[in-house]
Write a protein that binds this DNA or RNA. Structure first.
Lengths: 257, 257
DNA sequence: TAGTGGTCTAGACCACCTC
DNA sequence: AGGTGGTCTAGACCACTAC
């Protein structure tokens, strides 16, 4: 006989009921004291079970309100089209994508000079701690924190293209501005990873326990030189990345009925 | 004054010490009762703090042994080279990659006929519940569970290429076998997402709390037909995916000193 | 004010590992 | 045997939300 601990039985029973649709996304679970009666367990034991489901990302809780089944709506980002080398888009790809999806984008933006961390220095091929220009975006969709994006430029490039280090927006887009300055991005290297958020990331993206982040690092090259390194941190529950490679049939919105 | 709850103070203090290197990766934390004395908190409160760090993926615990700082070694998978259309590799790309990294790959393998789930049916463009061939791999590196890979083929293709549904390995590789049968993959569509593992996935990949999974879905096309859908589930703490797009300078191992 | 979850305690017993 | 974490309880008080 393989007896499970009681808190796990609670978690399993509730998970099954959520999967079955007994508690649809957005609905509320019974209160801790009700569950405590139902499972003949102390409140603390029930809490352990609920906690497990929170860590799985299945439910969330808020003080005074109760436990709610999480709803998952995903936003797709086409990374191979995002910055297409042959068909560059006009303006900001993020705003366009979000607006096209019928949502309202907003962002805060800042520029600063900052010493390169090991991770960034490695990719930009500059010395650890050497100066870089950081252009940082904190992005929202319908006022929900969605992602952060930090782009680092090496010092030598900022000297060649001084507007990079100026606080304002670059209206025509940085890629286009750099191209006009004779720096044309010929290719990029993408790295994708996942992990649980740091406390800082939890704060910026407003995620609780049970939601991982999706980390996307794009290193851009012009000839043999690295011209930038962009680190995007997504809420894992709200985002998905796509790549199209080779020849594909047309998929003109037929996937979104 | 912004007083934090005690269990969070415990978590923050320990996280800081881990970040500082006071407890390097692989080392053990003091026992719960020692921490209980140090922080003047009950054992349960200390446990809450430790639990938070477990959920962040920073530490892990095992009965009778204590808490250990997790070490992170990542395995990189180059998804744009993985199945290069112009320079196909010989044999199994996974085994080659792992062996090249000086590690020992192993896997279990099975083939079955199974009705298409909504997710798979959507991608294969077949009816929900219609028959598909599933070729499933459970992969290990040095006997550590690493990833699972499930490839679904539509029924019509299995009729055209009958060895797909046979239980054994396909020595020359399925891509090559299909090409010989006149089915040449011309392109693919990749989707990448992350979430916390389901209980099934936790079991197969042997991950505890605080480790998300990285989900990679590759849908392969030949002309306008979908010929397969491969769903790979990685342990998020051990894997990273890469894409090379456009022209890049040679990076012949110079990144791995 | 009543009900919800959030924090904390003190103590008990069990399961696992090392010696 | 002695130390570690894992489970569970009963009860207390606090903070937030709703009405």
């Amino acid at each position: 006989m393989n007896k499970q601990p009681k808190y796990r039985q609670v978690a399993d029973a509730l998970r099954r009921e959520i999967d079955n649709g007994a508690y649809p996304p957005g609905s509320r679970l019974p209160s801790e004291s009700e569950l405590s009666t139902r499972f003949e367990a102390s409140r603390n034991t029930v809490r352990s079970g609920l906690n497990a489901l929170v860590s799985e990302g299945l439910i969330s809780s808020s003080q005074g309100l109760g436990y709610e089944v999480r709803k998952h709506e995903v936003f797709e980002l086409n990374a191979s089209r995002f910055e297409n080398l042959t068909f560059p888009q006009n303006g900001d790809a993020y705003s366009t994508d979000v607006t096209n999806a019928g949502r309202r984008p907003s962002q805060t933006f800042r520029v600063e000079m900052t010493p390169a961390t090991a991770y960034v220095a490695d990719r930009l091929k500059v010395a650890l701690g050497s100066t870089t220009v950081l252009r940082f975006c904190h992005r929202f969709v319908d006022d929900v924190p969605w992602s952060t994006q930090a782009t680092y430029y090496p010092d030598w490039l900022a000297k060649q293209a001084p507007r990079l280090a100026e606080p304002g927006d670059i209206a025509e887009g940085t890629t286009r501005y750099l191209a006009a300055a004779g720096i044309e991005q010929a290719g990029y290297f993408d790295e994708i990873a996942t992990r649980m958020p740091t406390p800082d990331e939890s704060r910026l993206l407003d995620v609780g326990a049970g939601v991982p982040v999706l980390l996307w690092t794009r290193t851009g090259y012009a000839d043999d030189r690295v011209i930038r390194c962009t680190i995007t941190t997504f809420r894992g529950d709200l985002n998905r990345m796509n790549y199209e490679i080779g020849t594909l049939p047309d998929r003109n919105g037929d996937e979104r009925p």
